[in-house]
Design a protein around this nucleic acid. Sequence first.
DNA 1: CGGGATGTTGAGGCAAGTCAATCTAAGTGG
DNA 2: CCACTTAGATTGACTTGCCTCAACATCCCG
Lengths: 216, 216
Amino acid sequence: MAAHRRFQAGSLIYEQDTRIHQLHIITRGLVKLYHLMANGERQIIGFLGPGDLLGGIKRKDNAFCSAMAVTEVEACSFDRPRFTEFVHAHPDLCVTLLVVASDEIEALYEHSILLARKKATERVAAFLMAFAARWPSVDEEADSEAMIMRMAIPRSDIADYLGLTNETISRVLARLKQEGLIEFRGPKTIVLKNIPALTYLAGIEEHPRPRMALGL
Amino acid sequence: MAAHRRFQAGSLIYEQDTRIHQLHIITRGLVKLYHLMANGERQIIGFLGPGDLLGGIKRKDNAFCSAMAVTEVEACSFDRPRFTEFVHAHPDLCVTLLVVASDEIEALYEHSILLARKKATERVAAFLMAFAARWPSVDEEADSEAMIMRMAIPRSDIADYLGLTNETISRVLARLKQEGLIEFRGPKTIVLKNIPALTYLAGIEEHPRPRMALGL
DNA sequence: CGGGATGTTGAGGCAAGTCAATCTAAGTGG
DNA sequence: CCACTTAGATTGACTTGCCTCAACATCCCG
């Protein structure tokens, strides 16, 4: 029923406005979901990683977003009709998926607030904390509370996710570095030196519990 | 199992960070869902009307948003534990709810794009069209393609929903009026005179099909 | 017919966007 | 292994759309 699939970095898993044939449970790597607008602008809707469910449960067959592998990705893939069948046959699974979906809705509420009301600095801080919490890519620094984080994604992806531009991301990161909250080991590796301060900047009321994310 | 309830305009149905006891299917009126931030800013997450499901299906018992009746509201209300039981016992209902939830997620994707990328004019145009489509409050104008719309909500609610300020809403509406796309019959009643132009301004790719919305 | 809530309009400021010029890092082929 | 190449990142100067603050107008309800 399920097949193991592999996508190389940069490859499209499915494309906006085309039919989705499969549903994937990601086992390795990072996926970005994005939507292209008529004018060519791109909005990144979310990122998915190991344990997350992609290409979901929806009425329409056509994708609202494109899904692209950021790093190399491995997934366990199901044909949609067979999965739908399976869900119908297993009520408990269906209830579980409903809870996952409601968690996703709540996460989107929070992201709406970020996009609608937060300033660039707050957005970037929130992103760093959320990313670190969800994908603790590299281990903690030996001596301190710091955390070393490998960012697979380029600045422009962060920008398109946060509703900013890559220039603004650069400037904000530069300022955070200057203030001693973060540090670089090359542009893709960031050391979070002062996590409480970043959390405060992010304006986070509550620490996000780990959850299974869901992408359509 | 279910009880008919009535909420007067302006009353809280439930409050952010408090326990939700009931779940409501709205039968009349308009509800707004909003979240207050630490600094006192308010973001309106969505509006719900007849047929929509409020106070839902979620892991946590605590509400992320407050829900407030905008107009007088009538609803069919269920105790949460009993509803959960009922869902477990009726797999088909569960599948239906899953589809509703996925529609909601897709709608939130679109709203994220609006908040992240659209300009004030586009946001307002999109809001007018969406509001008119979802709650065709008053009939079409006899002679033309125009549509008369009664807006129960104040400018500040539109602003907080679109991530703008009430001043900006006023200015944009003034400009749309000046350009002949809309017209006023008092500040709460708007005539949509040129729907194609508004749709174009909104940058909508696809007309939203009617759907059941869901609020947490 | 007041008076508070809501809506409109104007002037000025600022955060982030835009455009453009480097700078750097990570490959790539000789 | 090193020069070359190119995509990505940074930094600076300038612009702009929306916010802020403030004054005024209008609506609605007793």
